[in-house]
Design a binder for these strands. Sequence first.
DNA 1: TCGATATTTCGATAAACATCAAAATAACGA
DNA 2: TCGTTATTTTGATGTTTATCGAAATATCGA
Lengths: 95, 95
Amino acid sequence: MRTQEVFKAISDPTRRKVLKLLQGGSRSAGELAEAFDITKGSLSHHFNVLKAADLVRCERRGQQIVYSLNTTVFEDVAAVLLDLFKVDKGNGGRS
Amino acid sequence: MRTQEVFKAISDPTRRKVLKLLQGGSRSAGELAEAFDITKGSLSHHFNVLKAADLVRCERRGQQIVYSLNTTVFEDVAAVLLDLFKVDKGNGGRS
DNA sequence: TCGATATTTCGATAAACATCAAAATAACGA
DNA sequence: TCGTTATTTTGATGTTTATCGAAATATCGA
């Protein structure tokens, strides 16, 4: 997994909102854009970030491009977090 | 929870490494610094980011400042992620 | 093929960020 | 109080990021 890309992607509120919207099912770029006050160009940039993190997939449907959630990354993110917060017992821990 | 701060903090490899080191127990700023090739000033900046995200706590012990993991944020992060990836069924989902 | 629609890419700009070196702060021990 | 050690803060610099408007690309329907 692209750990850095994934967390950076998730850290942005706009992109989290995109993910939330996609929870309700696939949406075209235009449909998604209605929910935001930024230009479609800016939003397209966010789509690219989400794609680079493999958090969303996209497919062309006629004139539109339809985005959908890629839920398979979830397990990977969860694993990283678990590893990041589990407290190690029994080795060189000092305090 | 400071969602944005937390994910931004976690997205940086240096800061993830700090968290990993703190899994083994509390460490002073100097001890932590040994594990990195950047200046202590830069590292101090990273500590500030981690503190702002409430991912670590620090306490002065004599001349040293000792950092430790704040594991309580873990639940909050997990909740956000769960919410972000759970697929909603039964409403206006189209595709 | 042409015009309309949907989306992305490009070029520019301003804000945020990581980094360094150096100065400032804090605590200790003689 | 002075010098030393530990750490943070400051000021400067280069890089990345979010954003816009405009141009480019792709598809459709007539």
